[in-house]
Design a binder for these strands. Structure first.
Length: 284
DNA sequence: CGTTCAACCTGGGCGC
DNA sequence: TGCGCCCAGGTTGAAC
């Protein structure tokens, strides 16, 4: 997503519209009219990704106004598009970026669970700083995972979704990472040893890098699209996510689906074997 | 500390 | 065809 909209950097915001903003919630702070006023005339200096959030750096028009950041959290169905969205419905915001090949950025969100916030530097730190987001999954190391999760009793799958522990991993990639690492998603973190963390970290970096290369996962025929409204292709490389009942690509055992923390978890019971408890110490 | 549930929303799919 | 469920790439806060 960040790569797709990176070319808006250097543009200036000429106009802001909220074509559907009166009918639905979707958290926009400040309220649309005020946000539009604050954005108008600002120059776009940066587009950054922090975990699953996008932060657009702005140099406001007025001479003494401090830099601002437009922090966008797409959540389940939010998309940033440089082309017209599939339908006008659910479109929440349009930035007219001006004198650019692709001069309009739109935030389109079918379910409306996404959020848009305009913040200052301190607000960016609050929304995307180390207190909120751990090391990014694209670059996380075994040592870092062991440090933040090693003592936890939580199941590894649930822990990988904790953005404060490690940033940027969602339900699809948590499942894919653990399949590649060969670890049962129910394993308590504290039962993992150094070699396990090496495999989890390497799998996280590898899976996420490949998913970015393939422009994400577009499952079925709706929802996630690139900034120019193309499907991603990583779904073709999924080994477990959404594949319950189909044979594991590695061992032919049917993939299983369970629920953890109210989210689906997919895994192969053979490639990701249940771990025996540490053997009871025997004294005699 | 960790888990569970509800809430925020729309829409597709399925069984009856 | 229509209705009532269940499900969905996420996050947060309350209750236990």
């Amino acid at each position: 997503m960040r790569r797709g909209i990176g070319r808006i950097v250097g543009g200036r915001i000429h106009a802001v519209r909220f074509p559907r903003s009166t009918r639905r919630p979707l958290s926009i702070v400040p309220r649309p009219a005020l946000l539009a006023e604050r954005l108008r005339g600002a120059r776009i200096d940066a587009v950054e990704r922090h975990g699953k959030r996008i932060a657009i750096g702005l140099e406001p028009a007025g001479p003494e106004r401090a830099p601002r950041w437009l922090v966008i959290e797409p959540r389940m169905t939010g998309l940033l598009l440089l082309v017209p969205p599939p339908t006008a419905d659910h479109l929440r915001m349009e930035l007219d970026v001006g004198d650019r090949p692709c001069h309009r950025l739109r935030f389109w969100d079918q379910r409306g669970l996404g959020t848009i916030r305009l913040v200052d530097a301190a607000g960016l730190e609050r929304a995307c700083g180390a207190a909120k987001l751990g090391v990014d999954g694209l670059v996380v190391t075994a040592a870092e995972l062991g440090r933040v999760l090693g003592g936890s009793r939580r199941a590894i799958k649930v822990a990988l979704l904790d953005q404060r522990a490690v940033a940027g991993i969602g339900n699809i990639y948590a499942a894919e990472i653990l399949h590649r690492a060969g670890i049962d998603p129910r394993t308590p973190c504290r039962r993992l040893v150094a070699d396990d963390w090496e495999r989890v970290a390497a799998a996280a970096r590898g899976i996420l890098a490949a998913a970015v290369d393939h422009e994400g996962s577009s499952i079925g025929d709706e929802l996630y699209r690139t900034a120019d409204d193309r499907k991603g292709s990583y779904q073709r490389l999924h080994r477990v996510y959404g594949l319950a009942g189909t044979p594991c690509r590695r061992c032919r055992t049917p993939i299983e689906r369970i629920v953890q923390a109210q989210r689906s978890t997919f895994f192969c019971p053979v490639c990701q074997p249940r771990r025996r408890r540490a053997p009871p110490r025997r004294s005699r």
